[in-house]
Design a protein around this nucleic acid. Structure first.
Lengths: 132, 132
DNA sequence: CATGATATTAGTATAATACTAAAATATATA
DNA sequence: TATATATTTTAGTATTATACTAATATCATG
């Protein structure tokens, strides 16, 4: 898929998808990411120009491209998380650690990693690893 | 050890240590990192102010603190590299992939990872994993 | 001491992050 | 509908990391 995003962009993508239970607006993102509205505005503008999110009547959502990026991030996240927790790293710690790097991983490598783990169905929290 | 560095700082630390066969000066770093002298100058200034490197008559070297950071980076690098290559990722690819994240890893997690791999003596390239 | 090598300063630029204050726009309610 | 409230956007500023060119300074050596 070949994407290149920043840490805050990653957090925004994840927040959007993990709060899809309600219509997410700019001020929600500001709250969720703990930043002020103008900062959120900038971030959103950047993600829009990259075609990762779109705004419809002020409601922000991931584009198909954005969703595919989310899937890769979360696949990387859970795969790595599993490796760390299996090694004895506490799961909160693992999560904290992994969110610093999950969006930097190459998908091909993650896929191989995933296969070598025996294609587990769930991560340590019980959430499905494979999405889409 | 708790360090926080940037990607270019990481590259500089690694380059310094991996070219310790000769006295490394500013212009060597510029060459090694493929940046112009003034950019190298800035980078070096920053690393000096963080107490990671020191300059003695124009010759740049890692401080003890810098060396300890290098050890953690390389420990993380080789451990992760081993995990990737064992999963079937080509070793050049693995290296490329891992240098994007090795300096972001928490040492405690890396230690656990390392132990769970059976404390291997060498990485895929045959270099020792444990330093110091 | 002059020349060439090396380092430094000055000035500029960009991207990502972040803020405050103010203005504009939308929405809701009296 | 008018006003109040909520939300978004603009304008202006700041910081950190990265990077450059051009110019100047410093150092070492022949």
């Amino acid at each position: 898929m070949e994407y290149s995003i920043t840490r805050k962009e990653r957090d925004c993508i994840v927040a959007l998808r993990e709060n899809s239970g309600f219509p997410v607006r700019l001020f929600n993102i500001a709250e969720l990411l703990d930043i002020k509205a103008p900062t959120a505005f900038e971030l959103i503008k950047r993600l829009e120009s990259k075609n990762i999110i779109k705004k419809t009547n002020g409601v922000i959502s991931l584009t198909p491209y954005g969703n595919s990026i989310y899937s890769e991030i979360i696949m990387a996240h859970r795969t790595l998380e599993l490796i760390l927790t299996r090694s004895g790293v506490n799961s909160d710690k693992a999560c904290q650690q992994i969110e610093k790097i999950d969006y930097l991983m190459d998908d091909t490598s993650v896929q191989k990693l995933f296969k070598s783990l025996g294609q587990p169905q769930t991560c340590p929290h019980g959430k499905p690893i494979k999405l889409n």
